[in-house]
Lab assay of single mutants.
Amino acid sequence: NEEPLPEGWEIRYTREGVRYFVDHNTRTTTFKDPRNGKS
């Protein structure tokens, strides 16, 4: 039961299956979860 991502964020996966987060607001990507700060 995960809380929803902030507005404008999306979860994607690399070809290796590593989860990362896309911030469409700033057009950046990060491996850090914007909901809780954990990677």
Rank of each mutant, 00 (worst) to 15 (best):
7 E>Y: 12
17 G>Y: 04
26 T>F: 05
23 D>S: 04
17 G>Q: 05
31 F>L: 11
32 K>V: 13
4 P>K: 09
11 I>R: 05
7 E>P: 14
23 D>I: 01
3 E>Q: 11
23 D>M: 03
4 P>L: 09
11 I>Q: 09
5 L>I: 06
30 T>A: 04
7 E>W: 10
8 G>P: 02
20 Y>Q: 03
13 Y>D: 02
4 P>E: 11
12 R>Y: 08
24 H>V: 08
26 T>Y: 04
24 H>P: 05
33 D>L: 01
34 P>T: 01
18 V>Y: 11
12 R>H: 08
7 E>M: 12
13 Y>Q: 06
16 E>R: 14
10 E>S: 09
29 T>E: 12
10 E>W: 03
7 E>R: 13
33 D>V: 00
4 P>G: 10
14 T>Y: 02
13 Y>H: 09
16 E>L: 12
29 T>L: 13
16 E>I: 07
6 P>R: 06
11 I>S: 07
25 N>Q: 08
19 R>T: 09
26 T>Q: 06
8 G>I: 02
39 S>N: 14
21 F>E: 00
2 E>W: 11
21 F>S: 00
17 G>W: 05
19 R>H: 07
25 N>A: 08
39 S>Q: 14
5 L>C: 00
32 K>F: 07
28 T>Q: 10
24 H>C: 08
10 E>P: 00
12 R>G: 08
34 P>F: 01
36 N>G: 14
11 I>K: 06
14 T>P: 01
29 T>I: 15
11 I>V: 12
8 G>V: 02
1 N>V: 14
32 K>Y: 11
2 E>S: 10
15 R>F: 12
4 P>S: 09
31 F>R: 07
15 R>G: 12
19 R>P: 13
30 T>F: 04
34 P>N: 01
35 R>C: 03
28 T>K: 10
28 T>F: 08
21 F>P: 00
3 E>Y: 08
8 G>N: 08
25 N>Y: 08
18 V>D: 07
35 R>S: 03
16 E>C: 08
1 N>F: 13
13 Y>P: 00
18 V>Q: 11
30 T>Y: 05
27 R>M: 14
34 P>E: 01
17 G>S: 05
35 R>T: 05
4 P>T: 09
27 R>P: 05
10 E>A: 07
16 E>D: 13
36 N>M: 09
14 T>A: 02
9 W>E: 00
8 G>D: 03
13 Y>K: 05
38 K>G: 15
16 E>A: 14
6 P>W: 04
26 T>E: 06
24 H>T: 11
12 R>T: 05
16 E>S: 13
37 G>E: 14
23 D>R: 02
30 T>M: 04
7 E>A: 14
37 G>R: 06
21 F>Y: 09
